[in-house]
Nucleic acid binder design. Sequence first.
DNA 1: ACTAGTAACTTACTTTAGGTAAGTTAGATG
DNA 2: CATCTAACTTACCTAAAGTAAGTTACTAGT
Lengths: 132, 132
Amino acid sequence: MSATLEHMIKNCPVDNTFKIIGKKFTFHIVRNMAMRNQTRFNEFLGTIENINPKTLALRLKELEETGIIQRTVYDEIPIRIEYTLTKKGEDLQGIIDQMATFSMKHYPKTVFKDGKRRNYKQVFKRPVSVLH
Amino acid sequence: MSATLEHMIKNCPVDNTFKIIGKKFTFHIVRNMAMRNQTRFNEFLGTIENINPKTLALRLKELEETGIIQRTVYDEIPIRIEYTLTKKGEDLQGIIDQMATFSMKHYPKTVFKDGKRRNYKQVFKRPVSVLH
DNA sequence: ACTAGTAACTTACTTTAGGTAAGTTAGATG
DNA sequence: CATCTAACTTACCTAAAGTAAGTTACTAGT
């Protein structure tokens, strides 16, 4: 096998990562796990804008297959299933942080009731009541 | 307007950024500009896997509208048009770096002719010939 | 004068991915 | 025995993306 530009591009590390989290809604699921501690199907379904059960089920399967999340079944009544980030999934935090940093710089319009701006970590630690 | 979970989620900074670069191929275009210094329509068309001229033209328009790239027309024969990152677009570098970092940790399979592994910055500075 | 070439698209048409609403499973509760 | 719940699944429809060919405007070659 000889050195080709094509080969180089196929091995682009940015591309590898994009293949894992680049599909529609995939990153939103990860974000909701990492930043809002959501774990359940109906939580994602209720809070991720415009997602539908069909696509959500598919994305959760894909994320499990790529080792980003783990599916745990609790034999309760009614049944309870929890999705949690694996160690590998937690390593996506750096990307989440950089995405937030970009937004805070270029779209700093999220201003709160007390007139202050907060960084996203503060926002997600605080109760919803500080928001407009 | 009262404080709602919905409002909080709508103002999620991660989501803001995802709206800018989350569509299919958008991030690949930015990566090719930032990491490979590509500037022209046919360069993107030839190196981004599976992209087609219709979608490429649309994405370039979207990126211009969101202020990530700039379109410059050079009145030469044949016509030359260059797409370059704006300052805002360059601020996506942090995200690119984190995506590469994630990949290098979890998919470190890109090994080169001399048996060494390199980080993605080294890879993209070197001639293609060091690759398999 | 005619043919081919170039870069950057655009158009018409087909295929695939995603959206919508309703249904399924299995056991619990009234 | 009908209703409720969580976590899906199914059938059907619509919107986004893929394919191939065409367009524009000007140059170079025969």
